Amino acid sequence: MFIVSLSYKKDPSEVDKFIEPHLQFLDKYYSEKKFIFSGKKNPRTGGVILARNVNRDELQKIIEQDPFYQNEIANFDITEVIPSKYDEDFAVFIEK
């Protein structure tokens, strides 16, 4: 499981130009069961994606398809997480 932290490099007005294509990108990987959640940081300095069912190399290739990556809108920081304790409602997302 991976946490992908996005940090915007551009002004919010520039970010907004790529929101729709970014959302389409997210939808693709939700449908493939690769993403668990995503959302904006508060304050709006970037976003976060929680990814599963991928290895680091595959996730890097997925990120490279994001319009935010392709248009240099954000930096992407990937952190692998191995859950050892979690709420039972979250168990469905834990890879066995």
Rank of each mutant, 00 (worst) to 15 (best):
K17P: 00
R52F: 09
R44W: 13
V54E: 04
I73K: 06
E72P: 07
Y30R: 02
F18V: 00
K41C: 08
F37V: 03
K28H: 12
I94M: 08
I36H: 04
S31V: 03
S7L: 06
F90A: 15
F90W: 13
I36T: 02
E95P: 01
D77I: 11
K34P: 09
Y86A: 13
F35D: 00
S84K: 03
I3P: 00
L26N: 06
E14N: 12
I63H: 08
L23Y: 02
L6P: 13
F90M: 14
Y86H: 13
N71R: 05
I36E: 02
G47F: 02
K33M: 01
V4K: 11
S84D: 05
P21R: 14
S13P: 02
D77P: 06
K34D: 02
L26F: 06
E95K: 08
S7Q: 01
K17Y: 03
I62E: 07
K10M: 13
L26T: 01
N75G: 03
E88K: 14
P83L: 15
P67E: 05
P12S: 06
D11L: 08
K96E: 14
N53C: 10
N55C: 08
D77G: 03
V48P: 07
E80I: 01
D27H: 01
V15L: 04
Y29H: 00
F93T: 05
V15K: 00
V54D: 08
H22W: 13
D77A: 10
E32M: 15
F2V: 01
N75A: 06
E32Y: 06
G46I: 05
D11T: 08
F25L: 05
I78A: 10
I63Q: 05
Y8C: 07
S7W: 01
K96F: 08
D89W: 12
P12H: 02
N75R: 13
P12L: 12
K85Q: 14
D27N: 10
T45L: 07
I3E: 06
I73D: 11
R44N: 05
E20F: 08
T79P: 07
D66R: 13
D11W: 03
L6A: 15
I49Y: 00
P21S: 06
V92N: 05
V15E: 01
V15C: 03
D11K: 15
D16F: 14
I19F: 07
N71F: 14
V81R: 11
G47A: 09
Q60I: 10
F93W: 15
E58R: 11
N75C: 07
D66V: 07
E32W: 04
D57K: 15
N55Y: 12
S7E: 11
I94T: 04
Q24S: 10
Q24G: 03
F37I: 14
S31A: 08
E32A: 07
N53L: 07
K34L: 04
I3M: 10
V92F: 09
F68E: 10
I62S: 01
N75P: 04
K85H: 11
V81D: 02
A74Q: 06
G46D: 13
A74W: 00
D11G: 01
I36N: 03
E32I: 04
D77W: 08
P21E: 15
Q60E: 12
Q65S: 12
G47S: 09
I78V: 15
